[in-house]
Protein backbone atom coordinates (compact mmCIF):
# COMPACT_ATOMS: atom_id res chain seq x y z
CA UNK A 1 0.00 0.00 0.00
CA UNK A 2 1.38 3.36 -0.99
CA UNK A 3 1.91 6.22 1.42
CA UNK A 4 -0.42 9.14 1.18
CA UNK A 5 -0.16 12.84 1.89
CA UNK A 6 -2.55 14.23 4.46
CA UNK A 7 -3.03 17.93 5.07
CA UNK A 8 -4.60 19.36 8.21
CA UNK A 9 -4.27 22.26 10.59
CA UNK A 10 -2.12 21.74 13.68
CA UNK A 11 -2.15 24.46 16.30
CA UNK A 12 -3.39 26.97 13.75
CA UNK A 13 -0.71 26.16 11.18
CA UNK A 14 -1.17 24.07 8.06
CA UNK A 15 0.80 20.82 8.00
CA UNK A 16 1.24 18.18 5.36
CA UNK A 17 2.51 14.75 6.26
CA UNK A 18 3.43 11.72 4.22
CA UNK A 19 1.97 8.79 6.12
CA UNK A 20 1.53 5.11 5.65
CA UNK A 21 -2.09 4.07 5.32
CA UNK A 22 -3.88 3.44 8.62
CA UNK A 23 -1.26 5.36 10.58
CA UNK A 24 -2.99 6.81 13.60
CA UNK A 25 -3.06 10.50 14.36
CA UNK A 26 -1.35 9.62 17.65
CA UNK A 27 1.65 8.03 15.97
CA UNK A 28 1.96 10.77 13.37
CA UNK A 29 1.81 13.49 16.01
CA UNK A 30 4.30 11.74 18.27
CA UNK A 31 6.84 10.42 15.81
CA UNK A 32 6.59 12.68 12.75
CA UNK A 33 5.52 16.00 14.21
CA UNK A 34 7.22 15.87 17.62
CA UNK A 35 4.08 16.45 19.65
CA UNK A 36 5.04 14.11 22.48
CA UNK A 37 2.58 15.64 24.92
CA UNK A 38 0.19 13.30 23.12
CA UNK A 39 0.77 10.23 25.27
CA UNK A 40 0.70 6.55 24.49
CA UNK A 41 -0.89 4.73 27.40
CA UNK A 42 -2.71 1.96 25.56
CA UNK A 43 -3.45 2.49 21.84
CA UNK A 44 -6.74 0.79 22.59
CA UNK A 45 -8.99 3.74 23.34
CA UNK A 46 -8.96 2.79 27.00
CA UNK A 47 -6.99 5.47 28.84
CA UNK A 48 -7.45 8.93 27.32
CA UNK A 49 -3.76 9.79 27.52
CA UNK A 50 -3.62 10.38 23.75
CA UNK A 51 -6.44 12.92 23.75
CA UNK A 52 -6.20 15.80 21.28
CA UNK A 53 -8.76 18.39 20.27
CA UNK A 54 -10.28 17.93 16.84
CA UNK A 55 -12.16 21.05 15.78
CA UNK A 56 -12.19 21.86 19.50
CA UNK A 57 -13.65 18.55 20.67
CA UNK A 58 -11.63 15.92 22.54
CA UNK A 59 -10.90 12.75 20.57
CA UNK A 60 -8.70 9.74 21.16
CA UNK A 61 -5.91 10.13 18.66
CA UNK A 62 -4.88 6.47 18.99
CA UNK A 63 -8.11 5.34 17.38
CA UNK A 64 -8.14 7.91 14.62
CA UNK A 65 -6.59 7.19 11.22
CA UNK A 66 -4.74 10.34 10.31
CA UNK A 67 -6.53 10.47 6.94
CA UNK A 68 -9.72 11.19 8.87
CA UNK A 69 -8.41 14.56 10.04
CA UNK A 70 -7.65 15.83 6.55
CA UNK A 71 -8.73 19.46 6.34
CA UNK A 72 -9.61 19.63 10.03
CA UNK A 73 -8.23 21.48 13.04
CA UNK A 74 -6.04 19.52 15.47
CA UNK A 75 -4.85 21.00 18.77
CA UNK A 76 -2.44 19.52 21.29
CA UNK A 77 -1.00 20.81 24.53
CA UNK A 78 2.06 22.04 22.63
CA UNK A 79 -0.24 24.36 20.70
CA UNK A 80 -1.96 25.76 23.77
CA UNK A 81 0.97 26.29 26.13
CA UNK A 82 2.11 29.92 26.14
CA UNK A 83 5.83 30.56 25.67
CA UNK A 84 5.90 32.04 29.15
CA UNK A 85 3.42 31.06 31.80
CA UNK A 86 0.55 28.67 31.80
CA UNK A 87 -3.03 28.43 30.66
CA UNK A 88 -5.76 28.71 33.26
CA UNK A 89 -6.23 24.97 33.18
CA UNK A 90 -2.51 24.25 33.51
CA UNK A 91 -2.20 26.71 36.39
CA UNK A 92 -5.11 25.00 38.14
CA UNK A 93 -3.57 21.54 37.72
CA UNK A 94 -0.25 22.82 39.02
CA UNK A 95 -1.72 24.55 42.05
CA UNK A 96 -3.98 21.64 42.98
CA UNK A 97 -1.25 19.04 42.44
CA UNK A 98 -3.64 17.47 39.97
CA UNK A 99 -0.98 14.98 38.93
CA UNK A 100 1.75 12.78 40.29
CA UNK A 101 3.64 11.07 37.48
CA UNK A 102 2.09 13.44 34.95
CA UNK A 103 1.44 10.83 32.31
CA UNK A 104 -2.33 11.34 32.27
CA UNK A 105 -2.08 15.11 32.61
CA UNK A 106 -2.06 16.33 29.00
CA UNK A 107 -5.18 14.29 28.24
CA UNK A 108 -6.90 15.42 31.42
CA UNK A 109 -6.15 19.06 30.64
CA UNK A 110 -7.42 18.96 27.07
CA UNK A 111 -10.68 17.32 28.10
CA UNK A 112 -10.99 19.92 30.85
CA UNK A 113 -10.46 22.78 28.40
CA UNK A 114 -13.14 21.43 26.08
CA UNK A 115 -15.50 20.86 29.00
CA UNK A 116 -15.11 24.38 30.35
CA UNK A 117 -15.65 25.93 26.94
CA UNK A 118 -18.92 24.10 26.64
CA UNK A 119 -19.90 24.30 30.29
CA UNK A 120 -18.10 26.99 32.28
CA UNK A 121 -19.59 25.91 35.60
CA UNK A 122 -19.61 22.11 35.60
CA UNK A 123 -20.95 20.09 38.49
CA UNK A 124 -18.96 17.17 39.88
CA UNK A 125 -21.15 14.85 37.86
CA UNK A 126 -20.38 16.86 34.71
CA UNK A 127 -16.67 16.62 35.45
CA UNK A 128 -16.85 12.88 36.12
CA UNK A 129 -18.80 12.40 32.92
CA UNK A 130 -16.40 14.46 30.80
CA UNK A 131 -13.30 12.74 32.21
CA UNK A 132 -14.77 9.25 32.36
CA UNK A 133 -12.50 8.08 29.55
CA UNK A 134 -9.30 9.33 31.18
CA UNK A 135 -7.49 6.96 33.50
CA UNK A 136 -5.18 8.10 36.27
CA UNK A 137 -3.39 5.45 38.30
CA UNK A 138 -1.65 7.83 40.70
CA UNK A 139 -3.83 10.54 42.15
CA UNK A 140 -7.13 8.95 43.10
CA UNK A 141 -8.77 11.64 40.89
CA UNK A 142 -9.65 13.88 43.84
CA UNK A 143 -6.99 16.51 43.06
CA UNK A 144 -7.89 16.34 39.36
CA UNK A 145 -11.49 17.23 40.16
CA UNK A 146 -10.20 20.01 42.39
CA UNK A 147 -8.09 21.28 39.53
CA UNK A 148 -11.03 21.31 37.13
CA UNK A 149 -13.16 23.15 39.67
CA UNK A 150 -10.38 25.67 40.27
CA UNK A 151 -9.97 26.19 36.54
CA UNK A 152 -13.72 26.75 36.21
CA UNK A 153 -13.66 29.28 39.06
CA UNK A 154 -10.64 31.05 37.59
CA UNK A 155 -12.28 31.07 34.18
CA UNK A 156 -15.49 32.60 35.45
CA UNK A 157 -13.53 35.15 37.49
CA UNK A 158 -11.62 36.06 34.34
CA UNK A 159 -14.88 36.29 32.42
CA UNK A 160 -16.29 38.66 35.04
CA UNK A 161 -13.20 40.83 34.84
CA UNK A 162 -13.40 40.83 31.06
CA UNK A 163 -17.07 41.73 30.98
CA UNK A 164 -16.60 44.45 33.60
CA UNK A 165 -13.80 45.78 31.47
CA UNK A 166 -16.12 45.75 28.47
CA UNK A 167 -18.89 47.66 30.22
CA UNK A 168 -16.61 50.40 31.44
Amino acid sequence: MASVVVAFELGGRPVEVLVSPLATLQQVLRTQLGHTSVKDGCRQGGCGSCTVLLDGEPVLSCLLPVEDVAGRRVTTLEDLTPVDGLTTVQRAFLDANGFQCGYCTPGMELVTKALLERNPAPTRADIAEALSGNVCRCTGYVPIIAAVEAAAAAGSAAAVVASEGATR
Binding site: C42, Q44, C47, L131, S132, V142, I145
Partner: peptide, 16 residues
Protein backbone atom coordinates in the same frame (compact mmCIF):
# COMPACT_ATOMS: atom_id res chain seq x y z
CA UNK B 1 -6.63 -3.54 28.74
CA UNK B 2 -8.14 -0.82 30.89
CA UNK B 3 -11.62 -1.87 29.84
CA UNK B 4 -11.16 -5.34 31.29
CA UNK B 5 -8.98 -4.45 34.27
CA UNK B 6 -11.53 -2.88 36.55
CA UNK B 7 -10.75 0.16 38.66
CA UNK B 8 -13.07 2.78 40.13
CA UNK B 9 -13.50 6.00 38.21
CA UNK B 10 -14.41 9.51 39.22
CA UNK B 11 -18.07 8.61 39.52
CA UNK B 12 -17.28 6.02 42.21
CA UNK B 13 -15.13 8.30 44.36
CA UNK B 14 -15.84 8.38 48.07
CA UNK B 15 -15.12 11.29 50.36
CA UNK B 16 -11.42 10.95 51.13
Amino acid sequence: DFAGYLMPGMAELPII
